[in-house]
Computed example of a mutant assay.
Amino acid sequence: MSSHQAVREGAKQVVRLLEKFPEEKFKYLVSFKATQLERFSRIAGIPLPKKLATEVPGENKTSINEIKDIVNRTSGPLGLQKDMLRKMQAAIPHDQFTESAMKDQITALSNLVNNKYKNYYDVGDKLYKPAGNPEYYQRIIDDIQGKKKENILAGLRTVFMGR
């Protein structure tokens, strides 16, 4: 198997692992899962899954492939000076994966998906429920998930009294 073929197969494995990756609880401007799926789908030569194609930020904007095409098509696109063109070409990310680098990507992602480090470095109740304020972290999680909202008086009491 050639090196290029091994990299493509590795990228396909990374895409399969990324599809198992959990959804992000907080919606940011950029999603780790969506951007990595877009990146490795392009390397693997497979289309982006339809569900995540809508989540990729900037879907209606110019893609990185279109920018690469514009920069590489002519010697001076859009009337740019040659030094500016060189700066743009240097700024465009180039995915140059080797077989060993792709194996490292697969290993790292599978460790994340399987919660290897969370299980390996398990923290006990002493950290999750400190003696001084055992409900502290649970209150934060409930507030983030919208289960239990504190009103202004309860919030002030928490700030001043510590509980």
Rank of each mutant, 00 (worst) to 15 (best):
M1N: 07
S3N: 13
H4W: 09
E9N: 09
G10Q: 03
Q13S: 11
V14D: 04
V15W: 03
E19S: 08
K20A: 11
E23D: 15
E24A: 07
F26E: 15
F26L: 15
L29M: 15
V30G: 08
V30S: 12
F32L: 13
K33M: 04
L37H: 00
S41I: 02
S41Q: 01
R42E: 15
I46S: 04
P47H: 02
P47W: 00
P49I: 05
K50E: 14
L52E: 13
T54F: 10
T54L: 11
E55L: 07
P57L: 13
G58C: 04
K61Q: 13
S63Y: 00
N65L: 10
I70N: 01
V71L: 14
V71P: 03
R73V: 05
L78H: 02
G79A: 02
G79F: 00
Q81I: 03
K82Q: 09
M84F: 11
L85I: 10
A90T: 09
A91F: 01
I92S: 00
P93M: 00
P93Q: 01
Q96R: 10
F97A: 08
E99C: 04
A101D: 08
A101K: 09
A101F: 05
D104Q: 06
A108H: 06
L109E: 00
V113E: 00
Y117M: 05
K118Y: 15
Y121E: 03
Y121V: 04
G124E: 09
Y128T: 10
G132H: 13
P134F: 06
Q138V: 10
I140Y: 05
I140N: 01
I141C: 12
D143S: 14
K148Y: 13
K149H: 09
K149C: 07
E150M: 15
I152M: 14
A154K: 12
A154E: 15
G155C: 09
L156A: 14
T158C: 11
